[in-house]
Design a protein around this nucleic acid. Structure first.
Length: 284
DNA sequence: CTGGGGATGGGGCCC
DNA sequence: CGGGCCCCATCCCCA
């Protein structure tokens, strides 16, 4: 994704208030449908400062909220429109006066965590200020159409496309990493399941051997009891594990599942094929 | 070397 | 969200 339109540099005294932005994300600043990051997209132009006497603020929300309600042409995000019953998160976050008060965790840390560049592109003014000839005045950045949207909508198809691209990126970044090893999963449940392979909570009462899951322990207990509930219908041989019965059934099959590409010899198990190939196949 | 059994691990799916 | 289950894979060992 082209990043050029997302990059903005800041002079020393106009660094965005990360704590404020982070708070918006934690409360109302996240996309209600996809959880994506929503940041204020309008900056006060240097020529249009905040109310005199106000402390320096990176964003002038007051003017933004007024623009949000403009009857602009709208392109809806499918993800957001699907479950969009509540107010637009962007509008809420911008309109909420609390958003400009309490500090929070640095947004830059969150962006870093998400693998995003430190700062998102922020147009300086909306609506674009037009000169007498209709041309955009200085201070209007190309990405400005992205900022003001009616609830759930965007000004242009390009703006919507960029938004959806960002949401896809954020969705892909939503990974759950194991602290004990370098594995990561797409869901918390999968991660919890994996963590059991470290904690091994299922203990065998006979020998004390530990297992990650109860059914693994059950299979192990059969090695103590000698129970073999899985019987081969062809030879009446019994097995303690279904997978081993399945492997055994392959021995009754005329057509072996795994074939050597060099000599066309077939094997019942991939491990046998691998061992065959490692030993040099039928090559001289 | 080959075939096969035994035991175990782990991801995904369903309820 | 957790447990049970299925399926696949792998390693070890023995005949």
């Amino acid at each position: 994704m082209p990043r050029s339109f997302l990059v903005k540099t800041h002079s020393g005294h106009r660094v965005p208030n990360y704590g404020q932005l982070e708070r918006q994300r934690e409360t109302n600043g996240a996309c209600s449908a996809c959880g994506g990051l929503v940041v204020p997209l309008v900056l006060p132009d240097k020529a249009a400062p905040s109310t005199p006497g106000d402390p320096p603020r990176p964003w002038d929300f007051t003017s933004v909220v007024a623009h949000v309600s403009l009857p602009l042409p709208t392109f809806l995000c499918n993800e957001e429109a699907r479950g969009a019953s509540g107010p637009d998160p962007l509008e809420v976050s911008l309109a909420d006066p609390r958003a400009s008060r309490a500090p929070g965790a640095p947004l830059r840390d969150s962006l870093k965590h998400l693998g995003l560049p430190p700062l998102l592109a922020l147009p300086t003014r909306w609506p674009p200020v037009l000169g007498a000839d209709g041309a955009q005045a200085p201070g209007h950045l190309p990405g400005a159409e992205r900022a003001p949207r009616t609830p759930g909508g965007f000004r242009t198809p390009a703006a919507l496309a960029r938004h959806q691209q960002l949401q896809c990126h954020l969705q892909a970044q939503r990974r759950f990493a194991c602290k004990s090893c370098d594995k990561e999963y797409g869901s918390l449940g999968a991660l919890k399941m994996h963590i059991r392979t470290h904690t091994l909570p299922c203990l065998c009462a006979v020998c004390g051997k530990a297992f990650s899951r109860p059914w693994l322990l059950q299979g192990h207990i059969r090695t103590h009891t000698g129970e073999k509930p899985y019987t081969c219908p062809h030879c009446s041989r019994a097995f303690a594990d279904r997978s081993n019965l399945r492997a055994h059934l392959q021995t009754h099959s005329d057509t072996k599942k795994y074939q050597c590409k060099r000599c066309a010899k077939t094997f019942s198990r991939v491990a046998l094929l691998a061992r065959h190939e490692e030993s040099g196949c039928c090559a001289p």
